[in-house]
Write a protein that binds this DNA or RNA. Structure first.
Lengths: 203, 203
DNA sequence: CGACTTCCATAACGGCTGGTATATAAGTGA
DNA sequence: TCACTTATATACCAGCCGTTATGGAAGTCG
């Protein structure tokens, strides 16, 4: 027996798709934030009842973390990919245009899930805020290292601080997310991207 | 009679200072956001009971709006003042260093009240979010007009879009606020300011 | 001294929060 | 068919939310 463990789901099978439910939850967190998203909002969007949600995902915080994983894996992957561009300018271009697409895509909520949930919040949400901030710090660290290599490669003049450049690029990205969440049009965000890249130093 | 209306406060006098209570409320909203700040948080910080709060300020939303007024009047006034600098670069310098001081002052909560409350939120807070976003739009409009004049004055080359420059400056400012709220040190924010100003075009 | 007005303190309101106990339905394997 | 396991549906929990009614305290005015 036990030839295939995956084909032996004892008990009643669940009636919903976990991945689809998680994607729906991501949309809710993305548009309302962790605190602003109530369990009622989530269950309605996911099309399941509360006990099903708790059985499948644990609790609200665990659900958020799984949604955050999904976001980084499927939505914000352009950030990691941007670091592989051949020059510092290429990194900036890929990051800004990737962010532009993500933040202004009509199929998505406006703005950035991580920016939304890294700003101030109530006491109960502090732990998830910390988690989000930690992920942002990891991205920033990777970008610093990338720009340190870029400086050694001569992508920009040696008197420009690569750490400052990384921080600058992330700041513009965050500002774009804030403006997208505040209702900026895609054309406006495009103008921001183009202005920023025009000011970008070196190659 | 009625020689001086201000010296005839009939009834029992209130036992707290309205201005001090409002300042305390501002601090709470500033560190936790509108939704994250509970009435219990507010009354405790303000040193008054809930009925006193309602009698003096109306309700939570009205209290927030008064705190927002106070914030713009006493904390974020550097934004308006920055527009009076003689050149576009001067505007950028005053704005960035003013923001640096505000966002990293040890006496204040970290970050920017308006950025915090302009990102996604639950349904109940939508109206106050709209109000905050509208104020931001007013600032951006004023900055656009300022940079249109700066372009006419030759502060930067004519092929640079003044609207884009205004949007860029605000985006960096918003990004700095996000990073300040996420725990960035003053030195890190200083590096961001210096990097941004080094990239600023023209005079 | 009262009459009047305003403020403070307690306590409670209905409603919503995240989370769960209970009972039933739907599948497995023997 | 019958035990076993797991998912669903309903209903409910204690606790907090923003808000307010009530009773008494602290003032001014006549």
């Amino acid at each position: 027996m036990e030839v295939d463990a995956a084909t032996a789901p004892k008990g009643r099978p669940r009636e919903f798709c976990v991945d689809a439910a998680l994607a729906a939850a991501l949309r809710v967190f993305w548009s309302k934030g962790y605190e602003g998203a109530s369990m009622a909002d989530l269950t309605e969007a996911m099309g399941i009842t509360k006990p099903s949600l708790y059985a499948a995902f644990g609790n609200k915080e665990a659900l958020f973390n799984k949604a955050l994983d999904l976001y980084e894996r499927e939505k914000a992957d352009f950030m990691r990919a941007a670091l592989e561009a051949p020059t510092a300018r290429g990194v900036a271009e890929r990051l800004m245009y990737g962010a532009l697409d993500l933040y202004s895509c009509p199929d998505n909520p406006d703005g950035c899930l991580e920016v939304i949930n890294s700003v101030a919040c109530g006491a109960e949400a502090e732990c998830v805020r910390k988690a989000v901030v930690a992920r942002g710090a990891a991205i920033q660290q990777a970008m610093r290292e990338r720009f340190a290599r870029a400086r050694d490669a001569g992508d920009f003049s040696a008197d420009t601080n690569p750490d400052g450049l990384a921080q600058f690029l992330i700041a513009v990205n965050q500002g774009m997310a804030v403006q997208a969440g505040a209702g900026a049009t895609r054309a406006e965000l495009e103008r921001l991207v183009e202005t920023s890249l025009k000011l970008w130093p070196g190659r």
